[in-house]
Simulated scan of single mutants.
Amino acid sequence: MNIPTIKDVAKNANVSVATVSRVLHNLSGYSNKTKLKVLQAVEDLGYHPNAIARGLINKRTQTIGVLFPDVSSNFSSEILHGIEEIAHEKGFSVIVCNTAVDGKRTMKYLQVLREKQVDGVVFTSEVLKDEYYQALKEMGVPVVLVNTQSHKHMIPYVKVDDRQAAYQATDHLIQNGHREIAMIGGTPWDPVAGIPRLEGYRQALEDNNIQFSESRVAYGDFHLESGREAMEKLLTEALPFTAIFAASDEMAIGAMGVALEKGLKIPDDLSIIGYDDLRLSRMIFPPLTTIHQPLAQMGRLASEKLIALIENTEEVSSSIVSHHLVERQTVQPKP
Rank of each mutant, 00 (worst) to 15 (best):
A218Y: 03
R228G: 05
L239G: 09
S318V: 08
G254I: 12
R114G: 15
V143W: 00
S281E: 12
H292K: 07
N32M: 13
R22Y: 09
S73W: 02
H324Q: 13
Q329R: 14
Q293W: 08
G186T: 04
E311I: 08
G91E: 02
K33R: 14
A243K: 01
N176D: 04
I244Q: 00
H25G: 04
T313S: 14
V121F: 13
N147R: 01
T187Q: 12
I210G: 02
L295D: 01
E78W: 08
V143G: 03
I291T: 09
G46H: 03
S226N: 07
L36V: 14
E85N: 14
V146C: 01
M154W: 05
K11L: 07
M154E: 11
T19V: 05
L278K: 01
L128N: 04
M183K: 00
Y167H: 06
N50I: 10
T289Y: 05
Q62Y: 15
F285I: 11
S21L: 01
L280P: 02
V71G: 05
R22V: 06
E126S: 15
S93L: 15
L27P: 02
S213P: 03
G120H: 07
P188R: 00
V144G: 04
H151T: 07
T124E: 07
K35H: 03
D190I: 11
R54E: 13
E43D: 10
A252L: 10
L80Q: 04
I272Y: 00
H25N: 15
G194S: 07
D190L: 13
A246S: 12
P196L: 13
K11A: 12
